[in-house]
């Protein structure tokens, strides 16, 4: 079972990113679950979502304590949340960042999802949309296939710019 933890702030689309990722994995023929962890938080507070992908039906409902992959949609969270907590020794990290961050080395990747969203003018209520471009980056990392990522985005959104943004992230991410 492949376990992913997504860190974001309320309103940034982390919950939808988890759903999109599960849908893409599902379209790849895998079993997948997406589960947001809801606290009493409101817009702007750090939130976490969990995605599990497996070849077998998934019966686990508890939180992910030892993720294979950590995704950080807002690196400012790293000041207040230990995003690497429990990360497996062979685990990976994907940051929404234009630059590598100090202390985050090895299997830590970064891609400027915010810049990609802004370039496509993917903005809702003043916030760049991160949940669709991140799917492209995850496709590049091999978590899901690119066709399934695109299909999942089209199933949930009608605006084709979301697919373009995902492709841009796919191109930009270095692996």
């Amino acid at each position: 079972m492949y376990e992913i933890r997504i860190h974001s702030r309320g309103g940034q689309g982390g919950v939808t990113a988890a759903k999109l990722l599960a849908l893409a994995a599902f379209r790849d023929g895998k079993h997948a679950t997406a589960c947001p962890f809801y606290g009493a938080e409101r817009r702007g507070a750090p939130v976490v979502s969990f995605v599990r992908i497996d070849d077998e039906p998934i019966k686990v409902y508890s939180q992910i304590h030892e993720p294979d992959l950590v995704i950080v949609l807002d690196t400012s969270i790293m000041d207040v949340v230990d995003v690497l907590d429990g990360l497996r020794a062979d685990g990976e990290v994907l940051l929404n960042s234009a630059h590598p961050l100090p202390g985050c080395n090895g299997t830590c990747r970064y891609v400027d999802l915010t810049g990609i969203a802004l370039a496509e003018n993917l903005v809702i209520a003043g916030s760049p949309i991160l949940n669709t471009p991140v799917l492209g980056a995850l496709a590049k990392m091999g978590v899901v296939t690119l066709p399934s990522a695109e299909q999942a985005i089209r199933e949930m959104f009608t605006d084709e710019r979301n697919v373009k943004a995902a492709r841009a992230a796919y191109e930009e991410l270095k692996v």
């Binding site: 599960a22 079993h31 997948a32 679950t33 947001p36 962890f37 998934i58 409902y61």
Partner: peptide, 12 residues
């Protein structure tokens, strides 16, 4: 159905 654990989880 369990609150959040099932009401908000996405499955097939």
């Amino acid at each position: 159905l369990d609150g959040f654990a099932l009401s908000h989880i996405t499955q097939s």
